[in-house]
Amino acid sequence: MNLFTQVKTLIYKDVLLEWRSKYAINSILLYVVSTVFVCYQSFKSVDSPIWNTLFWIILLFAAINALSRSFLQETGSRQLYYFSIVSPQAIILAKICYNSFIMLLLSSTAFLVYNLIFSNEVGHWGIYMLSILLGSISFATVFTMVAGISAKAGNNSTIMAILSFPVIIPLLIVLINLSQQGVIGGNFEASWKDISVLLAINVVTIAISLLLFPYLWRD
């Protein structure tokens, strides 16, 4: 099997496993919706910069909760089995793709509920949607690798948080900048710099993950 088929099979396996239990995805969707309600009950109404920032903070915590369980199933003998049939690059690529998909679902649901409850004017829908898309992919790429590391450290949730927060902060700053451009109705020329920084960080993160994951995986 070449890399592409391996990745496809692994993604299919993850989706199938998730679809059979539906436990993880339902619980995380419920988590997002309840967090939005908690914020709504405490803030009642917010002005637009806080509206934007609050959305990203809700997404950040939801993402940490959703993606820290990426490697929960791959333990012990199952890992040995994968090791004998697929390459480690295929595993990390499949996890990144699957997690991006999960994050897209999560952030679009979160945005729908959030925008319904805290209604706010978005000036430029294109930029805002693009920032959500890029944000989902960035969260997925960074958190997948960190989840892999923290899984090796015994799946400790504190370790996951302290390892990933400093790494995600630059991304979060750029994302908040970009989506703020979307809220105030800026144009693509003004946000081009932010978009290219996000893409560059993503490319670098994926490249490093591909290089480092084989070492992480081999016990």
Binding site: I149, P166, V167, I208, S209, L212, Y215, L216
Partner: peptide, 14 residues
């Protein structure tokens, strides 16, 4: 040693 080396390399570009 191995896991912290991986995190160290991961954190440097960020």
């Amino acid at each position: 040693a191995k896991i912290s080396a991986i995190y160290n390399i991961f954190a440097f570009p960020i």
